[in-house]
Design a protein around this nucleic acid. Structure first.
Length: 602
DNA sequence: TTAGGGTTAG
C-alpha cells in the first residue's frame, strides 16, 4: 500500500522534477533532483535518465553523464545523442564522433538529431574527412536532406575549409527547406574562408529571394565581416543601415563586426564612433578597437584604451595583449612593449606564446635593434610554422636595415622550419637577394618556375561607385577603357615627382628618365615609361581619374606596400592635394599633403 | 537529444 502511494506521489512529482531538470544549470541542483528521483524510484526509466543525462551535460559534467549512461539498462537514440551533444559542447568533439561509431555497433538507429550533433562535432574539429564519413552515414540513413542536418553539414564543411562541399550541400537543399539559419550558415562559410565577394553575392541573393525571412543578426554580422575582409565600404555602410533599421544596433557581436569593418575599410573615426556607442564593452570590443587603433599607428591612443579597459575591470586576453604589443611595435614604443611582454604572466596571468614573441621580435627589428631581436627570437623556443613566421619577420627587418650578414642567418633559420616548399624557396631567395647574391636568388626563382611552384600574386583593388576594380602588378589590359589614361596620368605624375627629387621605382623596373640611354628601347615620344608598375599605383591612377576631388581614395592591397610606392603616394598626395588611404597586409597608411600617418615608421 | 555570428602578429 505504501509502495503504491510512493509511486502515486512519484507520478505527480515527475513532471515537476523534469521541469526542474530542464531549468537547472548548476551541478548542485541537478544532483539534488537526481537524488529525489532515486528516492521516488523514478530514476531508472529511459525518459528520466535521458533528462538527467542532458542536465548533467548542460552543466558541463560529462563525466557524471557518462557514468549514468554506462549504468543505463536501456538506452535509446535520445540517450546516445544527448551524451554526444554533451561531449561536442564541452570541448571533446572527438569523443562525440567516437560515440557515433559505438552507437552504430549497439544497433540503436541514429536520427536527424544524432547526425546534426555529429556534424557539429566534426565542425569543431574542422575535420573534413571525419565530417565526410558522418555525411555519408546520414545520406545512407536518409537524413542528409533534413534541413538541420544539411545546415550542420554546410557549417562543418565550411569550418573544415571545404567551401565547394559546403555550397554543394546548400545547393542540394530544396529552396523551401532553407531557412534563415541555413542562409546565415552558408554566408558565414564564405566570410570565414576569406571569400568576402562570394558572401556579399550570396547576401544579395538572399535579399532578392528570401524577403519573407527575417534578416537576423547572425546574417548581418557575417556579411559585415565579409565587407571588412574585402574592404567594401559602401556595402558595409549599407548593411550598417540595415542593422539600424532592424533594431540590432545593441547587439555586441554586430557592433564588434562594425568596428572591425570600418577600421579595415580605412574609416577609423566611424570605427571609434561605433565602439563608443557600446554600453559596457567586454574584452572583445576592446580588443577590436585596440587592434584598429594600433593599425592606424596611434600607439599611445591604443595604450590609453588598454589602460581604460583594465581600469574598468575588464580582464585582457591573449589577443588583447597581442594587439597592445602590435601598437607598441608600430609606434616605436619598444620599452613599453618589452615591459609588457615580460610582465604578461605576472600581471595578467597570460603566458606569452609564439605570436607574442613574433610581434616583439618584429618590434625590435622595426626599431633596428637587430641583435636584441635575434636574442629574443632564440629565447622564444618555437618551432614549425610559428618559427617560420618568427624568423621570416626577422629576415625582413634585417633586409630593411640593410644588415645582409644577419639576413642570411635569419633566412637560414626560417627555411629550417618550413615544409612549404614555395615558402622556403621564397625565404631563401629573399635572403640571397639581401646578401647581394643576385645570381643565387635568380636561380631559386627559376628553379621555382621550372617546378611549377607559384606564390599568390600581389594585387590591389579599389572600389569606385560600388564596383571593385582589381589590379595586378604591371598588368593593364589594353581592353580596359581607361588603361591608357591611367598610364598617361602616372607618367605625368612621375615627371612631377622626379622634379621633387623622387629616385624610387614604382614597379619592378626603374622609372626611366627621358634621356636615359640605357633603357632607350622603352621610350615613347620622349616620355619616361614604366614597366611592371606596382598594383597599388595602378589602383591609385584609376582612383584619381574616377573619384571626384574632395573624396579620399582608398586602396587595398594583399601584400605590404613597398618603400618606393609609399614615397610616391606621399609625394602625389601633395602634388594633387588629395587624401589617400592604403590598407596593406598589415596596417593603414593615411597620406595627406605629402606625408603619411605612419611618419615613415612601419 | 539537433544547426548559425565578434577580436589575433608577420
Amino acid at each position: 500500500m505504501a509502495a503504491t502511494s510512493t509511486a502515486g506521489a512519484g507520478a505527480t512529482l515527475m513532471p515537476l522534477l523534469i521541469q526542474l531538470l530542464r531549468g537547472a544549470s548548476d551541478l548542485a541542483s541537478v544532483s539534488a533532483t537526481h537524488a529525489k528521483l532515486l528516492k521516488l524510484g523514478a530514476a531508472t526509466s529511459v525518459a528520466s535518465s535521458n533528462h538527467l543525462l542532458a542536465a548533467y551535460c548542460r552543466c558541463g559534467s560529462t563525466a557524471l553523464a557518462r557514468h549514468l549512461f554506462d549504468g543505463m539498462l536501456d538506452r535509446n537514440v535520445v540517450s546516445w545523442t544527448a551524451l554526444m551533444s554533451g561531449y561536442a559542447s564541452t570541448g571533446r568533439p572527438r569523443a562525440a564522433v567516437a560515440l557515433l561509431r559505438a552507437m552504430a555497433r549497439s544497433g540503436v538507429p541514429p536520427n536527424a538529431f544524432t547526425f546534426s550533433t555529429a556534424a557539429s562535432a566534426c565542425a569543431r574539429l574542422a575535420h573534413a574527412c571525419l565530417g565526410r564519413q558522418v555525411h555519408a552515414r546520414a545520406e545512407v540513413a536518409g537524413y542528409a536532406c533534413d534541413n538541420v542536418v544539411a545546415t550542420a553539414l554546410v557549417d562543418m564543411y565550411g569550418k573544415a575549409g571545404s567551401v565547394p562541399d559546403a555550397r554543394a550541400v546548400f545547393d542540394a537543399m530544396p529552396a523551401t527547406a532553407r531557412n534563415a539559419v541555413s542562409w546565415a550558415s552558408m554566408l558565414s562559410v564564405y566570410a570565414q574562408n576569406a571569400l568576402g565577394h562570394d558572401a556579399i553575392q550570396l547576401f544579395a541573393e538572399f535579399i532578392t529571394n528570401g524577403e519573407d525571412m527575417a534578416l537576423n543578426h547572425f546574417m548581418l554580422s557575417s556579411v559585415v565581416n565579409a565587407c571588412a575582409g574585402v574592404g567594401r565600404l559602401s556595402i558595409g555602410k549599407c548593411v550598417h543601415g540595415m542593422v539600424l533599421r532592424h533594431g540590432h544596433e545593441d547587439n555586441d557581436v554586430i557592433a564588434v563586426a562594425l568596428v572591425d569593418m570600418y577600421s579595415k575599410c580605412g574609416c577609423y573615426e566611424y570605427s571609434k564612433k561605433v565602439f563608443d556607442r557600446i554600453k559596457r564593452p567586454s574584452v572583445i570590443p576592446y580588443t577590436s578597437i585596440i587592434v584598429a587603433t594600433a593599425k592606424y599607428g596611434l600607439g599611445r591612443c591604443a595604450l590609453a584604451l588598454f589602460s581604460d579597459m583594465v581600469d574598468r575591470g575588464v580582464q585582457p586576453n591573449s589577443v588583447t595583449l597581442l594587439g597592445v604589443l602590435h601598437a607598441c611595435s608600430h609606434s616605436g614604443l619598444v620599452d613599453t612593449g618589452l615591459q609588457l611582454l615580460r610582465s604578461m604572466r605576472s600581471k595578467y596571468g597570460i603566458d606569452p606564446c609564439a605570436s607574442h614573441y613574433t610581434c616583439a621580435v618584429d618590434m625590435l627589428g622595426r626599431a633596428g635593434q637587430l641583435e636584441a631581436a635575434f636574442e629574443l627570437a632564440d629565447e622564444a623556443q618555437v618551432d614549425g610554422n610559428d618559427a617560420l613566421m618568427l624568423w621570416s619577420s626577422l629576415l625582413s627587418a634585417c633586409r630593411n636595415h640593410k644588415r645582409l650578414d644577419l639576413a642570411t642567418m635569419a633566412g637560414q633559420k626560417a627555411s629550417e622550419f618550413t615544409q612549404d616548399v614555395a615558402g622556403a624557396l621564397v625565404v631563401m631567395s629573399n635572403a640571397y637577394a639581401s646578401a647581394g647574391q643576385a645570381d643565387d636568388a635568380a636561380a631559386v626563382w627559376s628553379n621555382m618556375r621550372r617546378r611549377g611552384i607559384r606564390k599568390d600574386p600581389g594585387c590591389s583593388w579599389i572600389e569606385i561607385k560600388d564596383i571593385p576594380y582589381v589590379f595586378y602588378a604591371g598588368v593593364v589590359s589594353p581592353a580596359d577603357e581607361r588603361a591608357g589614361e591611367v598610364m598617361l596620368l602616372l607618367d605625368e605624375l612621375v615627371i612631377k615627382m622626379r622634379e621633387k627629387g623622387y629616385k624610387g621605382r614604382i614597379g619592378s623596373a626603374r622609372v626611366f628618365d627621358a634621356d636615359d640611354e640605357e633603357d632607350g628601347d622603352h621610350h615613347e615620344e620622349g616620355r619616361g615609361v614604366m614597366v611592371g608598375v606596382h598594383s597599388e599605383m595602378l589602383a591609385l591612377g584609376l582612383g584619381l581619374l574616377m573619384i571626384p576631388k574632395g573624396m579620399a581614395i582608398r586602396v587595398m592591397k594583399n601584400l605590404r606596400m613597398c618603400c618606393d610606392c609609399h614615397e610616391a603616394f606621399k609625394l602625389i598626395s601633395g602634388i594633387v592635394e588629395r587624401e589617400f588611404v592604403v590598407r596593406d597586409l598589415n596596417r593603414f597608411h593615411h597620406f595627406r599633403m605629402g606625408s603619411c600617418s605612419c611618419n615613415d615608421y612601419w
